[in-house]
Design a binder for these strands. Sequence first.
DNA 1: TAGATTGTTAATCGATTAACAATC
DNA 2: TAGATTGTTAATCGATTAACAATC
Lengths: 226, 226
Amino acid sequence: MAASELISARVIRRVSFYYEVLLKLNLSPDTYISSKRIEEMTGVSCNQVRQDFFYLGFAIGRQKKGYQVGVLLAELKRVLSVEKCAEVVVVGAGRLGRALTEYPLFGVRNIRIVALFDNDQQVVGQNLKVRDEIVPILHVDAMDAFLRTRAGVNIALLTVPESQAQGAFDNLIRLGIKGIVNFAPRILKIPKGNKQVQLINECVGASLYKIVYQICRNQEGEHRDE
Amino acid sequence: MAASELISARVIRRVSFYYEVLLKLNLSPDTYISSKRIEEMTGVSCNQVRQDFFYLGFAIGRQKKGYQVGVLLAELKRVLSVEKCAEVVVVGAGRLGRALTEYPLFGVRNIRIVALFDNDQQVVGQNLKVRDEIVPILHVDAMDAFLRTRAGVNIALLTVPESQAQGAFDNLIRLGIKGIVNFAPRILKIPKGNKQVQLINECVGASLYKIVYQICRNQEGEHRDE
DNA sequence: TAGATTGTTAATCGATTAACAATC
DNA sequence: TAGATTGTTAATCGATTAACAATC
């Protein structure tokens, strides 16, 4: 894999799986784990696992034994750039915003929520406690100043109500945020010509829609496996 | 498309996009909308849009005009099975569980959260108000009885802390739930041989991981478009 | 008419699966 | 050795994109 090549979202997601499952297993770094065993743990086929490792240029396996846990974790870590802490802000301190702030796997991945922003005076000034750190809820008007003192922060999670989504989004772009994950129930679009900003419209309900669809269909037609 | 054939998750997701965007536009049912215009609204290419409609057997377009909004909405609705209300329970009445309960697009899709369950006596007995409906928080021990009186409920959202995920999951399977979306930060697996239950392990952080990865990479290497 | 837009097919692209020689 | 498991290539599968005749 060329160094400058972007890994696809699919691969990233599987690598996350491997990494988190492996961490959770908490095996001694000098034990070995086979692709078959990784399949059992993650549900990703052993062929896919080996293909991924090959594609990522790992070449750290040993026939008959598998992959040394410590070495494998280091490689996965490198791919995910976990060593470097990624600092992120949350815009919208409602239930979803707070839930995300507390999401435990962000810690594992060295992602740190450094502040929440809201325009509701009722919540501004509160603090959230996340893994021994205090995360403040600030007023949106203070975001400009905040970001200027924290040049490393260039990613935002957007969790405002639908009615405020567009405005908050425009504001984030204006402030120079580079990456936005939009959890608001509205599809946002980057203004044409702007190549600086990355946007993902997250669909909280996508999985549920899929399940609902499958269950409904199965009830109508005859039952079939798989 | 054969009636018994399952539509892929990709298609379902795009169809959701079309449906929600179209609803939001709130056009008169007898106006027409072109695939090109749908591309502008959703970001899905007009080729993809037409391909989807073709695959789904719509055949409702008219050259030079496009698709009649009322007819198109009806077709999308049919595909998504939105006419029939899907009743769902939420297990875990924390921030994420409550945020999902209030998620506005579930209403659009005719998905109804009928109850939350928790084992914390502090929250049991509370009610959430969602779009004029009262949604109760009940004790997990009451779930068995609740589900027996509500045969139509066979889907659950799992939003408990990691430590309780496996237990709550096993319980849901025991109670005969057919579809589970797991938001807990642990990968769950359906016991081998069980073909009745559908499970999706939702990864709340997936999009953020992707953004973090892309932004980091872009900072390291030279800047490239796309 | 001329231009726009559909339905549909074919080409391309990318991702997954299968296979197997190498070898510990 | 024999069995297990890797790295790697080739085959398959599915999804997206491109193209274009049909036609309103």
